[in-house]
Design a protein around this nucleic acid. Structure first.
Lengths: 337, 337
DNA sequence: CGTCATTTTGCAAGCGCGTGCAAATGCCGC
DNA sequence: GCGGCATTTGCACGCGCTTGCAAAATGACG
């Protein structure tokens, strides 16, 4: 490493003929600096190519401006969309996103949170997986904010953002019944995360309220391939379902493709399908999937604004749980509508 | 902010009955510490919940361990796949990824690079957009490594990773000819990035070498919707193409969907299609797209290993340009094969 | 037991920055 | 011109860490 790469505030001060504090104050919003001093400093900084060292600033302020995004399956359409929206929102409020991938091994969420602590991230946002309770406690004890998106847990402290999954599931039942469907099925992954289970349970309960039993099938991860396999399982049943609610759009795409290309079943004529997430592919001509839109923008806004607010005061115990509404996007995979 | 949240090395030292240096050395690989001292320190650190402050460490070492990923359209299948692979590879070598989104406004790549400098990132990896030359110079002057992926530029200093786009385009021509196609078309976005243009130019040149002219159409961004529009333009031509090479899988998906659902053209019977990237959707039953696989793993490995190597010695002028091979993945969108 | 080479340890300086405090400056009315 | 006040400036300390250097501890050997 070369040693004299970065320009320090001292050098700027020397060039501008002021003290180093003046330089520091110039780049600190709300600090007391006369206009002429500021001008001199800004000019010198520009000339020298000076950039405030956020590492050092973070050290002093005890506030790094870093927010850690902890996520698995980040190449998935829904996840990447959420990441995108979050980073935008974070940048918008002057923070920066650190990305930690937890696909590698299990228990790596914990490892990731440790990493976040090392870099003194102001907060961690967990998009997936359920962190161990002990670890979240460690985070909170270290002054980190914690946001859990779609991975509800009863623990206290972090902000939890979830959707009204059960209610959405109820609307699907209504839509299916209106389309004249009677043999309902639910296609789920084996992941068993709270939001997926909420959709399943909500669907089963709502159907039962109308006197219908639901065939539930679960398989593998939340991806396209699982959707295909679930279709093979459900569409070969003696009593073939005429409507299926897939826990996820990705599952739905796989399901539809298998139904169409393997069993030559027409959607929605012979089979109604609903999904969840409203990923981009749901709108593609080959799928035209009726699904629920994840309110990405709202999620990001809630998360970031909570971080901003709790920056000022830190009401330790005042944990919040936010429940957002998922809009139903009508396309062509359910008759009627 | 509460003031006493983090455990410092001093506290660990006190508890372990050693000096602060001993603590520091314990967590510095390769430092001289006796086994028993190390043990005492580790125990005390564990008990107190101590984590090395990477901000402070970065300040001293002049090396933060942060690598900045600068990317637009990050929710796109190909981009998100690359991000995923890169973060994994970075974590694997003890570094951490910082994510900067450049979708917001133009010239925001420059803004992003400034952000990277502020956090004293050891390096920046640019996945999209062409940074201004002055800004890349600023980065290099500030001791940052720079990696440009698929956005070749003649500038010196950074590592440039690209694919053999022209050669790949040549193979498409061969495949199309073997399938008996004669009226070739190329569907491109208006983005005009070097890699897209290389595919276009390579395709046109290779066709010409076989005595064929190519109809080239360009529209909008590199996405599904543009693919549909390009299909509407190319498939209504008097001399309708019987083979089209789409610069990107996303374009190809849109193209195929329009061809199939709007013009009732069968792929590959009446129209051969090739794409580029091998995004997950290319393998879906509705597309079965023959395409070129981006060697994501190789790209990530090259980038990260270069960062590691140039960590040690910094041969300023020794810029490297790497050209990787894109494997052709045969599926069903070209006859024969 | 003394001498010297080797390892381990502590001291202290310094990385680049923010900020409390006191000194300096400017301004106003008398 | 001068006291009183508000604003600006500089000094110096500390944030948590690494590391060169010298002192202390350890071990080997005659």
């Amino acid at each position: 490493m070369s040693q004299k790469v970065f320009v320090s505030a001292q050098e700027v001060a020397d060039r501008a003929g002021v003290s180093r504090s003046a330089v520091s104050r110039t780049f600190t919003p709300g600090a007391s600096v006369s206009p002429e001093t500021r001008q001199k400093v800004v000019e010198a900084a520009e000339a020298l190519g000076y950039h405030v060292n956020h590492l050092a600033r973070g050290l002093m302020r005890n506030e790094s401006g870093i927010v850690c995004l902890i996520v698995s399956d980040m190449a998935t359409p829904h996840r990447s969309g959420l990441i995108k929206t979050l980073t935008q929102e974070l940048q918008h409020s002057g923070k920066i996103a650190m990305l930690v991938n937890t696909d590698l091994l299990d228990g790596s969420v914990d490892l990731a949170l440790r990493q976040a602590i090392r870099y003194r991230a102001d907060a961690s946002i967990i998009l997936s997986g359920m962190p161990d309770k002990s670890i979240t406690q460690l985070c909170l004890k270290n002054g980190q904010r914690l946001v859990l998106i779609n991975c509800d847990d009863e623990q206290n402290g972090p902000l939890r953002i979830n959707l009204d999954d059960e209610e959405a599931a109820g609307r699907v039942v209504t839509a299916f019944l209106r389309a004249g469907c009677r043999r309902l099925a639910f296609a789920n992954s084996e992941a068993g995360t709270p939001s997926l289970m909420a959709r399943e349970n909500g669907f089963v309960a709502a159907a039962r309220a109308h006197g219908l039993e639901v065939v539930v099938a679960r398989h593998g991860g939340t991806n396209y391939e699982s959707g295909r396999i679930l279709a093979q399982r459900l569409l070969t049943l003696a009593e073939r379902p005429d409507a299926v609610f897939c826990a996820t759009d990705l599952l739905a795409c796989g399901f539809i493709d298998a139904a169409r290309h393997q069993f030559f079943i027409r959607v929605p004529d012979q089979l109604c399908v609903a999904g969840f997430d409203d990923i981009e592919q749901a709108s593609w001509a080959s799928y035209q999937l009726t699904t629920f839109a994840q309110p990405l923008a709202a999620i990001a806004r809630e998360a970031v604004s909570w971080l901003e607010s709790s920056d000022a005061a830190k009401p330790e115990g005042q944990a919040r749980a936010i429940r957002l509404h998922a809009d139903l996007v009508w396309r062509g995979s359910i008759r009627g509508g």
